[in-house]
Amino acid sequence: MRTEEKWIVRIHDDNVNTFPGVTLVLEELLGWPVDACWATAERVHTTGSADLEPPVSAADAENVVAALQIRGLRATLRSVG
């Protein structure tokens, strides 16, 4: 993984986590407003996944993915160059 690349974190839908649960994790972890967290949870549910913008460094993306996974969410990362 090249460190100068930017990465996007993607949250995936599952059959376990609820809208309020995903919203709470995003709010606590990312500090986003509740409305933005709820909209992201809805996007995950309706489309199967949602990207967290903006792109971040590899280290930051890995940390966010790990933190989401520790809290029970399915998350991956992808390079955007």
Rank of each mutant, 00 (worst) to 15 (best):
N15M: 08
V44F: 04
D13M: 01
L52V: 13
E62V: 13
D51F: 02
I8A: 05
E27V: 10
E5S: 09
V44N: 04
T40I: 14
V34F: 13
N17E: 13
V65K: 15
I11Y: 00
V56T: 13
A58W: 01
S49K: 09
D35A: 14
A58G: 14
A58T: 00
R78F: 07
V9W: 03
K6I: 00
C37W: 02
N15L: 12
G48M: 06
V44C: 05
H45L: 07
T76W: 04
W38T: 10
D14F: 09
V9M: 13
G31M: 06
N17Q: 15
V56D: 03
I70G: 08
N17Y: 05
L68H: 04
A75Q: 05
L73T: 01
V22A: 03
E53A: 13
S57R: 08
R43T: 14
E42R: 13
S57T: 14
L26M: 05
E4W: 04
T76G: 12
L77P: 00
L52S: 10
S49Q: 06
A61P: 01
L68S: 11
N17R: 15
I70Y: 03
W7N: 11
P55A: 11
F19L: 14
G21R: 03
N17K: 15
N63Q: 08
G48Q: 09
S79N: 10
E27F: 03
S79H: 09
S57N: 11
V80A: 15
D13K: 10
V80Q: 13
R71V: 08
L73C: 04
A61S: 06
S79P: 07
V9R: 05
E27I: 01
G48H: 01
C37P: 00
R10N: 07
I8V: 12
N15R: 07
S49V: 00
E27T: 09
N15V: 12
G72F: 07
W32R: 11
E4H: 10
R78P: 00
I11A: 07
L73W: 01
N63M: 06
